[in-house]
Design a protein around this nucleic acid. Structure first.
Lengths: 149, 149
DNA sequence: CTCGTTGCAAAATGTTTGCAATGTA
DNA sequence: TACATTGCAAACATTTTGCAACGAG
């Protein structure tokens, strides 16, 4: 039994919630990839696997996954809310290209300690560090295009 | 003439856009505070000042302000999209309490240099550093409540 | 005078919720 | 069996857009 399943099961039990096929399917789909995803993508993934769960259920489930600490929202602007799993995924930072939307991940490195200390200095128990660097990727070293909507 | 107005005017000219009362009102309202705001709040602020601009116009204007580099989206999860002005606002980090929603700002400090180096290492021209530390504030040193929707 | 801009209302999204049927512990 | 869960459709909240009237350069 994979570790994350145990974690989720314990979380459900502790909160008087039930382990259902829909929830298990969603959980597996979420951990089947290291990519970011939104609820719609999760919905598609399940259908592609021949599984089923309504969007409503997935929206409800993703909240549980976040509450359990297994998943977090990706701290990046965008149309839809995107998520990523955390388990086995060390704290990292995102490099976002404001031109083409390219996204790169890397480790926090030296910054991590400094940030944790800042949190501590204010008396906060820090559970999550979200860092995104927005700028222009090497490929887009050009100029911006049209600005109008 | 305030610096940010000059910047916005140049931005408009460069893109063949026009300087209108609505846009100027929005710009001033945005820079009148250092708080985060969403479009609805901006709308209220204008009305309170006896100025007027439709929500549609404000949504259109805020995009221009972001494109001009004067304003950015706040990289924090939430119901509505929130913004903050950047001009005269040094790079900083946000401490977010996942219990009560409290929000604290602080300087990046030592982390800034480390993060910039990471960007450089990947060949990115970094324009913006967004950091949020999510956790539990001192006041909320308690336990979580009900998890269910 | 030419084109960008505005407001309104309608449309489009993304997400939540009430409710009756269903399933888990 | 008791109560949590699901799907559906309706409700919501936010943001975008078409269009005709208006306004800046």
């Amino acid at each position: 039994m994979e570790e994350y399943k145990v974690i989720f099961e314990k979380f459900l039990q502790k909160n008087g919630l039930r382990l259902t096929p829909s929830r298990m399917s969603a959980l597996e789909a979420v951990f089947a990839t290291h990519d970011h995803f939104d609820v719609e993508a999760l919905y598609d993934t399940l259908r592609r696997r021949g599984l089923r769960a309504s969007r409503a259920t997935l929206y409800r489930t993703i909240h549980l996954l976040v509450a359990s600490g297994l998943v977090r929202q990706v701290p990046i602007q965008g149309e839809t809310t995107r998520y990523e799993h955390i388990w086995g995924h060390p704290r990292h930072l995102h490099l976002v290209c404001t031109e083409c939307g390219a996204l790169l991940e890397d480790e926090l490195g030296a910054a991590e300690q400094a940030l944790l200390e800042t949190g501590m200095r204010h008396g906060w128990r820090v559970n999550e560090i979200a860092v995104s660097l927005r700028g222009v990727c090497p490929k887009c070293g050009k100029e911006a295009n049209d600005v109008r909507a």
